[in-house]
């Protein structure tokens, strides 16, 4: 089935035991598009992103990137989990930036970025380091290339996390509440980097509670509630949509109450 969307999620279903966390989620992202997912805590946003990178298996529906199904291959009518090498290759096509950074603490900033370049992209050491320095420079950390993560601030660590993901030249970048673990004064420097990447045409699917940022950085906003997509709107129509969607309205009201 041909699709012009880079990421095409259809009827995605996922349960943890008896608890159905995702119920028939439909969502697509085109090349160069920035889509932001918002929604109350526990609505399944993280799980959705993890499924796209196959950090989590899913039970029903499909996730396709450039037409290729993530995590499974169809063997006649049977759906089979892909092999380890296949999975790893697909994961390399989707960059992930985590709320908790997940940098490798025993490696320097440059080595964190180089690891995937060396082992997955098979770059020689010198070239891998050049690419790493390039991306660290782009996130404003050229001078911290040889620092260990433990020597960096939270905002700096998260920027290394972004550099590590984008250096692999993924088709799509997934960002899960990447500023939630940061002190407020460090949020801005990380969001600036994301804004830059968006400007460069990087395709992104992100989850954030920074509603103001979501509004001015994304092409579409997806509101999730109870494991379902409850609304999809262009950013400038978020308020209008809230007038018709009770849950969205009550969700947004919590932010305007604390926005000052």
């Amino acid at each position: 089935m041909a699709s012009e969307h880079l990421l095409d999620i259809r009827q995605l279903a996922k349960s943890f035991g008896k608890h159905q966390v995702l119920k028939a989620v439909d969502l697509h992202v085109s090349k160069g598009e920035v889509v932001t997912v918002i929604g109350p805590s526990g609505s399944g946003k993280t799980t959705l992103l993890r499924c796209v990178n196959f950090l989590e298996t899913y039970d029903g529906g499909s996730i396709r990137i450039d037409g290729t199904e993530v995590g499974y291959r169809n063997d006649g009518p049977q759906r089979r989990r892909r092999g380890e090498v296949d999975l790893a290759r697909m994961r390399a096509e989707t960059g992930m930036v985590f709320q908790s950074f997940n940098l490798f603490p025993h490696l320097t900033a440059a080595e964190n970025v180089m690891l995937g370049l060396r082992r997955v992209r098979k770059k020689p050491k010198r070239e891998a380091r050049e690419i790493a320095l390039h991306w660290l420079g782009r996130v404003g950390l050229g001078h911290k290339a040889d620092s260990l993560p433990g020597e960096l601030s939270g905002g700096q660590q998260q920027r290394v996390g972004i550099a590590r993901a984008v250096a692999m030249e993924p088709k799509i970048l997934l960002l899960d509440e990447i500023t939630s673990a940061l002190d407020p004064e460090l949020v801005g420097e990380v969001l600036d980097v994301v804004r830059q990447l968006a400007g460069d045409g990087m395709t992104m699917l992100m989850v954030t509670h920074e509603i103001a940022f979501a509004r001015d950085a994304s092409h579409r906003i997806v509101f999730m509630a109870d494991g379902m997509v409850s609304a999809v709107v262009p950013p400038d129509q978020l308020q209008a949509a809230a007038a018709e969607n009770d849950r969205l309205r009550s969700f947004l009201s919590r932010f305007s109450a604390t926005a000052h």
Binding site: L55, G95, F98, F104, L115, R119, A165
Partner: peptide
């Protein structure tokens, strides 16, 4: 921490590389 394995998965390392590096 669990996140170490997931960070390593997300950049596309295979299982043996995740362990080794």
């Amino acid at each position: 921490p669990r996140g170490q394995m997931e960070g390593a998965m997300s950049i596309g390392l295979v299982f043996s590389d995740r362990l080794r590096f």
